[in-house]
């Protein structure tokens, strides 16, 4: 007999025991270990996915903020550029105006200084000329400057051309046959009488002649009546000297630094 039923039963029992043993010592520990590992891996994957999602979110936030900052930076840069251009323009304008003002002030100051110098020089020259003339006349001709001026004036009157004489005569007539002789200095009595007699002999014996001292006249004598004036002063000679002096001063004030700085703002 190939089958022994006791052995069959024993083998079935052995097999069932083996199933229990394998379940107890092989499958259960290994399956548990696998499940535990899978659980750990799943948990790690889940954490990784969560961290990745967080990282993605952070990355998106960062990119968003970065682009926002970039936009703000560009905007601020544009604004700063515009502001800087405006400020630069303003500063240039202010500097140009300041320069122009300074230049104008300097020019004016120099002109004033030149004018003052010119006036001072003119006055000084005039005084020196008068002093020199007086001294020379006193030493060489034994006469005074005023007497000589009066003499020259009388000579001018006597040598007056006819047309001028007629015009002056008419003016005297219109004025009621009177005239005023103005001089920059006090005329001595002799010169006064000489002048009166000259005028009366030239225009009318009844001509009334008045004498006045006028400081505005520069060492000269003038006769005025009804808008007509006949005069002689040394101002004509002095004006030529003043012109020469003015040209000299202008040449001296035209300094290289001033000329080069004039065109710059």
């Amino acid at each position: 007999m190939l089958i022994d039923w006791f052995t069959v039963a024993a083998q079935a029992l052995n097999f069932l025991i083996l199933v229990w043993l394998m379940k107890r010592f092989l499958y259960k520990p290994i399956v548990n270990a696998i499940e535990e590992r899978e659980g750990k891996i799943a948990s790690q994957l889940e954490n990784a996915a969560k961290q990745q999602a967080e990282a993605q979110t952070l990355r998106n936030d960062y990119q968003e903020k970065n682009s926002e900052i970039e936009n703000q930076r560009a905007m601020l840069m544009d604004r700063a550029q515009v502001e800087a251009d405006r400020m630069k323009q303003k500063l240039f304008e202010e500097a140009r105006q300041a320069s122009e003002t300074l230049y104008a002030k300097r020019t004016e100051a120099m002109q004033n200084e030149a004018r003052e110098l010119e006036v001072a020089l003119t006055l000084r020259t005039r005084q020196e000329v008068f002093s020199l003339a007086r001294k020379l006349l006193a030493d060489l001709a034994s006469t005074t400057l005023e007497e000589q001026i009066c003499r020259v004036f009388i000579h001018r009157l006597e040598t007056m051309d006819e047309k001028e004489k007629t015009t002056f005569a008419e003016a005297l007539k219109n004025k009621g046959n009177s005239t005023v002789v103005r001089s920059a200095f006090h005329l001595p009595q002799a010169q006064c009488e000489e002048l009166r007699s000259t005028l009366q002999s030239l225009f009318s014996p009844t001509l009334q002649v008045l004498f006045e001292i006028s400081p505005r006249l520069i060492n000269g004598i003038e006769i005025t009546t009804d808008g007509y004036k006949f005069a002689w002063t040394i101002a004509e000679y002095l004006s030529s000297w003043e012109r020469c002096l003015g040209e000299l001063l202008q040449a001296s004030t035209r300094t290289p630094g001033l000329d080069s700085g004039k065109g710059n703002p």
């Binding site: 190939l2 089958i3 022994d4 052995t7 069959v8 083998q11 079935a12």
Partner: peptide
């Protein structure tokens, strides 16, 4: 081998 016994194979088949 126990599997060379018909009793064993029968037992397994019965299981």
């Amino acid at each position: 081998p126990p599997t060379g016994s018909l009793s064993t194979t029968a037992a397994l088949a019965l299981c």
